[in-house]
Amino acid sequence: MIKTLSQVAVLSPRINQEPGAMPGEGLTALQTFTYFVAAPIGLFLGISLIVWALTGEKKKSASSSSVITSIQ
């Protein structure tokens, strides 16, 4: 049983690669954090800020009141 598990552990990295794949160097911890944590959070906050600014409540001016849109 232990021998078969050790053989599977040795073969498992080879199973996931496609034939002819030439993997490059791995990412550093800083690159991984930047690409998968900081960038998505930054994009989310930037898009949220733009949407909030464009859909925020508008100031009402006194001269543009209408009998259709307000009741006096």
Score class of each variant (00 low, 15 high):
K3L: 09
K3F: 03
T4F: 07
T4H: 06
L5T: 04
L5S: 08
S6A: 10
S6E: 13
A9N: 06
V10F: 06
L11D: 15
S12D: 09
S12T: 12
S12I: 14
P13Y: 01
P13F: 00
N16K: 10
E18L: 14
A21R: 09
A21D: 08
A21W: 02
E25Y: 12
E25I: 09
G26H: 06
G26I: 10
T28S: 15
T28W: 02
T28K: 01
A29R: 13
L30V: 13
Q31G: 02
Q31L: 02
T32D: 11
F33P: 02
F33G: 04
F33R: 14
T34I: 10
T34Q: 15
T34F: 07
Y35W: 10
Y35Q: 10
F36S: 05
F36T: 05
V37G: 01
A38M: 13
A39G: 01
G42V: 01
G42P: 00
G42Q: 00
L45T: 04
G46N: 02
G46D: 00
S48R: 08
L49S: 14
V51G: 03
V51D: 06
V51T: 12
W52R: 14
W52Q: 09
A53H: 05
A53V: 12
L54R: 07
T55I: 09
G56M: 05
E57K: 13
E57G: 05
K58C: 02
K59S: 12
K59N: 08
S61M: 05
A62Q: 12
A62G: 02
A62F: 07
S63I: 08
S63Q: 14
S65W: 14
S66P: 00
S66D: 13
S66A: 03
S66F: 07
I68E: 12
S70E: 15
Q72E: 13
